[in-house]
Design a protein around this nucleic acid. Structure first.
Lengths: 372, 372
DNA sequence: CCTCCCCATGGAAACGTTTCCAATTTTTAG
DNA sequence: CTAAAAATTGGAAACGTTTCCATGGGGAGG
């Protein structure tokens, strides 16, 4: 097509020519490094302005062996947890003069490896990443072996690295407390993409431990892989196989909301027939009726934290202290969790009215504040 | 600190040395360009593997004047519309071998300008952007004047450029139809950050036109700037100033959900005392009770489309055809919109039961399918 | 056996910067 | 006024690629 393929780009040479000096001088003036006479400064400035000159970061990168670019690898932006975390990281990087190269892996480990390889070739100065399996991740291995500064996000860290993440184990355990407080003994765990998510597995494990500790039954696991379209069918089967179940802990809030919908479609009353607890604490959880009982987290702070850590490694400054694991989450009560129907008569009012207006447990709220 | 600042990076020279040949040969072999003997190919391959060589994209970029990187500028990822659009664009770019440099402007025009400048310096090959004002955007001007391939996303395009966006005008007008069908005459418009969003302004204008066409009152405008914390207070004032209002069109779904919550906090019944309609069609809108009446859009497709357009400009291939404006949205009925209380008695059942299970208007659904 | 071609190969230039160093000019001190 | 010190300036190398071009060798056709 009629495309002018040569985008005229004005370089430091053009400026030097226009200003009648050497390129070294232009570089010094425009970077405020080294010395230059007032006259020369003006000539160079004028020439640069006239030509609309901008430094080419590519040339600079080649020379400085630095790109001021960070690779950011997350499973998906469809999950607001990651979207918020990325936003937090990006803002911090931007403020520090770094750009963010984003890749979504769609929870595919192979894709993750490939993406990390590409970003490495692009010479990113560092990485912030959520890997699907921090032990077996090829990409993470390669990053480590090359000694590229990095920080994990929502992934388990081994001893020699840092991770900003929610204490999934404790948080899930806390959920079992919430269930037992409301008299639930027999509850299930529902996860999407259990196989390819460290997080979901951690939560299940923590939940199992908590249930054990609280003397509850070992939670049955329902694992779905497709998008939640057919959730209703799966849920039906699940409930038939586990007829004594009174509650479900879903591994994230969307799944929890979808579960509420599916439960209703099956003619069940939430929380009367089935209590639901989510994980993540997305905002809409407070807007729905009944409000969603959930673990609330602060993804933006996590993202920002990971960004801080990476930059501290790059700059050789001291790393920010990771938050106390116990403060990385809090439990938010909500109308979706209440006493099972049999014992429910006298609690109905309290369960459906009070949590929706003031859903946050006071202690937990304080914790959450201190995290920021 | 004790940081090994020199990350040993193995270059093409090292490979050449190891393989006992010139750098040109290495380049040819590893790129499969030009010819090379079988023996040489093996030696080079072996050397490269042994050293763990990867091309430096920086060196390549300098040489080829191409970075295989696209700048992606959006207001925020906190809004799932943009998050989805970015994800769609990123996936398409990734598949085509391009990386995505992400910047969130937080709706700040100055920041937007700055970000575009930075990305330009980084020599991105193209841009996908949502600008806050497509007419006055400094950044957009500079992109155009430099002739950098770009495509707008959710922004009004001038004659000489392309934009993948929802037809806000028609969509908002369609909302007025929905209101009037349910017997509303006097409704308001609620927007967040009205000033700095093309979109909100377009929607208001379309809504006004639609209301006029339908013989409704001119919609009152409530504009809030802070995050929705104090929405309840603002809403109270607004309703007191406009006591005859029976419905509110919120400029996005989150705002709509927040409005429902605030309305309830004020003791109002939704939709009985106040009907609410949103915009965007986020998924949770179908999960809440009452389900949210809204305009549904397909941000991921939009993002992917913008990506396609940009790449077509870069490659000089023919641009994809933009979707018919009428197919960029559809109206989804929902329990949050019903006849006002006075006339509501006999519609109550239909309004609260039917839409929640099968919320999509049939015609609109077909349109939506064809958009993909 | 002699040409002529084609294939294989490597040297060197170019891409846009920064920075070292040497050369020249200006300033300062004595 | 002179010498030394300081400031100013430009040339050139280096960063990691790709690609143009020249060189040399081997095979095919005569």
């Amino acid at each position: 097509m009629g495309r002018e393929s040569l985008r005229q780009t004005v370089t430091i040479k053009d400026v030097a020519l226009r200003a009648g000096c050497g390129v070294a001088t232009v570089s010094r003036v425009l970077n405020n490094s080294g010395s230059a006479s007032v006259d020369m400064q003006q000539r160079v400035q004028a020439a640069a302005d006239m030509l609309g000159f901008e430094f080419s970061e590519v040339g600079r990168s080649l020379q400085s062996n630095t790109t001021r670019t960070i690779g950011c690898v997350v499973p998906s932006l469809a999950n607001p947890v990651y979207a918020d975390a990325v936003q937090g990281a990006q803002e911090y990087f931007q403020a520090a003069g770094y750009q963010t190269l984003l890749v979504c892996t769609n929870y595919d480990p192979e894709f993750e490896t490939q993406a990390i390889r590409t970003l490495t070739a692009k010479q990113v100065d560092g990485f912030v990443l959520t890997v699907s399996d921090s032990i077996f991740s090829e990409g993470l291995k390669s990053i480590k072996s090359r000694g590229i500064p990095h920080c994990l996000l929502f992934s388990m860290a081994s001893d020699d690295e840092q991770s900003w993440s929610v204490d999934d184990l404790s948080a899930a355990s806390r959920v079992s407390d919430a269930f037992v407080e409301k008299g639930h003994i027999d509850v299930g765990f529902l996860a999407l993409k259990f196989k390819s998510s460290d997080r979901a597995r951690q939560r299940y494990q923590g939940f199992m431990q908590g249930c054990y500790r609280n003397g509850m039954k070992k939670p049955a696991l329902l694992e779905i892989n497709e998008d939640s379209q057919e959730l209703t069918g799966f849920l039906k089967d699940f409930l038939q196989k586990n007829p004594t179940l009174t509650g479900i802990f879903a591994s994230n809030d969307f799944l929890a909301l979808a579960t509420i919908r599916s439960a209703r479609a099956l003619g069940l009353n939430v929380p009367g027939d089935l209590s639901i607890v989510g994980f993540d604490g997305i905002e809409v959880g407070t807007m729905v009726e009944p409000s969603l009982a959930t673990i609330v987290t602060d993804p933006k702070t996590m993202g920002r934290g990971a960004a801080r850590t990476v930059l501290s490694v790059i700059n050789g400054t001291s790393a920010p202290v990771l938050p106390d694991p116990k403060l990385t989450f809090s439990f938010r009560a909500g109308g979706s969790l209440a006493f099972p129907a049999a014992e429910r008569a006298d609690d109905e009012k309290a369960a459906t009215l009070s949590p929706s207006n003031n859903p946050t447990n006071k202690n937990d709220k304080i914790q959450q504040e201190r995290l920021k």
